[in-house]
Amino acid sequence: MVKTDVKIGGLNLKNPVLTASGTFGYGIEFADFVDLNKLGGFIVKGTTLNHREGNPYPRSAETPMGMLNAVGLQNKGVDYFASNIYPQLKDFDTNVIVNVSGACIEDYVACAEKVAALDKIPAIELNISCPNVKQGGMAFGVQAASAAEVVSAVRKAYPKTLIVKLSPNVTDITEIARAVEGAGADSVSLINTLLGMAIDSEKRRPLLSTITGGMSGPAVKPIALRMVWQVAKAVKIPVVGIGGITTGSDAVEFLLAGASAIEVGTANFMNPAVTGEIVDYIEDYLVRHKMNSIDELIGALEV
């Protein structure tokens, strides 16, 4: 039996496979295809203090080996989550992590406090990088000072594991990573979506109601991998790798680049069973490469 468990702050994951917020609903939507207890954990849909209707349709556009989305954090608010969704999730034998978003520091803090009160939620992922809402976090995540400010405020209010999700839409992502590490983050996850755009040339109109949106999918993987590699060298806290992970070997690449865990996102739309398959692949990879523990794989890139 190979050792596949990893530690992210105070969080123990039985394996490094997580799901990216907004691509896996509340987990239960995928229960027909994946044994949720087999995953290291799953990160549920971006949650805000108050109900949000999100952006108008159309909210998505397919692009070569990728897609744009502009959902805009549609959710019913943290109180609805606590009373209606949480009871359905609390008995899973895995880590359920809530992605917390907000429009101002007070909202982030209030939302994080409410999630902290839920016993079976051991961590939050703080979304300071959503590109799809006017005051939707990305404003915080693109400046080191504001990123540190929001993380430090949430840190004071949130005692459990705090993962901060970073935006790739910045000049130097390592600078932001170091800033949030300094502000008390237990981990950083990256990358959120890349700001992109698509046009219908016949209609001479944008394909998204919001004109621009967040790009994800296999096409972004090389960028994500490069950023994970850079950040893993720049910080001491564990890094969670995200961006275009579609196969088990993609996941292993992120681990080699220095990620301690990974999130599977858009690939869930292509193959709803993919997360379970990636868990199996990683275990098999360790056996094939005669490694006893996943620790031998993390950051093991030979350059």
Binding site: Y57, S60, N69, Q74, F269
Partner: peptide, 26 residues
């Protein structure tokens, strides 16, 4: 309409109903 997951997870395929945005897929 345009869908991605088909499972009610991605919230891309919404119709603006009397009760707000609802997923066409679920």
């Amino acid at each position: 309409n345009k869908m991605a997951c088909g499972l009610g997870a991605c919230l891309c395929c919404v119709e603006d109903t009397k009760e707000g945005h609802k997923c066409v897929c679920t």
